[in-house]
Computed example of a mutant assay.
Amino acid sequence: MAKDLADNSETDRKGPGHVAVIMDGNGRWAQQRGRPRLFGHHAGAKRVREIVNACPDLGVKYLTIFAFSTENWKRTQTEVAGLMRLFRRYIEREARDLLREGVRVRFIGDRMKLDEKLVSLMDNLELLTSGNDRVHLTIALNYGGRDEVTRAAQRLAYEVEQGRLSYKDVDAETLSKFLDTHVLPDPDLVIRTSGEARISNFLLWQSAYAEYEFVDTLWPDFSAGEFGKIVGRYGVRERRFGAVLA
């Protein structure tokens, strides 16, 4: 199946182990069809399963998706409320399949602003799938890169204040241990759909050396086939991490 999805024969050997996706374009997709924006979000949620299922055959062990940003609260109350219902419904409906398919689910972001029922569902899904290792799916919910670094810095400052850590020990490696993603490898590849060419406050620290792909396809139309082609193209890139390779 991997050979059908990817257009590069070396994907398994050189492909990205961690892919992060900014799933953009749900609202426009719906509006193009004369439907409300929430119709597009429901279509986009269905697309997630296809991409998750494609990951093992493409050699992608970690998939991180941007579901709701700290800035998305600025949207209409109707859309925000609808999205929160969609998140609850997604967890309830997909939990058993995710468990059966070997997917481990984690959530990153600030949970303090989310309602108790949703947080409980998130906690339960993380616990339910904690023994899985086929694919690690991380869902960024009420997440913002600057907010994450700010919260990490606050926790780090508290440790220094309490005398458990010296300011002399604070470096990039130490700070990274306080990030939401401290148990995850940094993304190798970040994909944004819908034709927009910006990173929108997503994984700012972690993506310092990631490769980026900006594609015109709206998220509800983003197929496993297109995902595989992008993963395949990654296999021929030369990553220098700031160095000059001989």
Rank of each mutant, 00 (worst) to 15 (best):
G44P: 04
G228S: 07
A208F: 12
A95I: 09
R146W: 12
F87P: 01
D188Y: 07
L128A: 13
F178W: 10
L114D: 02
K14N: 12
S223W: 08
F87T: 00
R33D: 07
G163R: 07
N8D: 12
D97K: 09
V215L: 13
R37G: 01
P185V: 08
T174A: 14
E161Q: 13
V19N: 06
V170R: 02
G163M: 08
A210D: 05
G225Y: 09
R155S: 14
L38W: 11
K117L: 13
R100G: 13
T76A: 07
T174Y: 09
R164Q: 11
V52N: 03
P36I: 15
Y234M: 09
S194C: 09
L179G: 02
N26H: 04
N8T: 06
K113R: 14
R104P: 03
N53K: 13
I51Y: 11
A6W: 09
L128P: 00
D180V: 00
V48S: 04
D169V: 02
N53I: 00
D97S: 12
R111D: 09
R240D: 07
F178V: 01
D110W: 04
N26T: 02
L121C: 11
D216T: 06
P185D: 12
L203H: 03
W29Q: 00
N53P: 02
L86W: 10
F241H: 08
Q32K: 12
D115K: 11
G109M: 04
V236Y: 12
R28P: 04
G34A: 08
Q162S: 12
S120K: 14
R96N: 14
L99P: 03
A246G: 15
W73Q: 04
E213F: 15
F66E: 01
F87E: 00
L175A: 09
T70A: 12
R192C: 06
H42I: 10
T11A: 15
Y90H: 06
G242Q: 05
A210I: 03
L83D: 06
S9C: 13
D171E: 11
S130Y: 11
R75D: 08
D24E: 10
A153W: 06
G232H: 02
G144A: 08
E226V: 00
V135K: 00
M1S: 15
H136P: 00
I191T: 09
V183M: 15
V103T: 10
F39D: 14
A208D: 02
D147L: 11
M84G: 02
Q154W: 11
S69C: 01
V160F: 13
V170H: 07
D221P: 01
T150S: 15
L156V: 00
S120Q: 14
E148A: 13
V21M: 13
I22Y: 09
G17H: 10
P187M: 07
G34W: 07
L127I: 06
F178R: 01
N26S: 07
E213W: 13
E196H: 10
S166W: 11
L137V: 03
F214E: 01
E79K: 03
Q77W: 12
R49D: 14
T181F: 05
D123M: 14
A30H: 02
D110G: 05
E213A: 15
K229L: 10
I199D: 06
H18C: 05
N72Q: 05
P220L: 02
V21T: 05
L137N: 04
L175G: 06
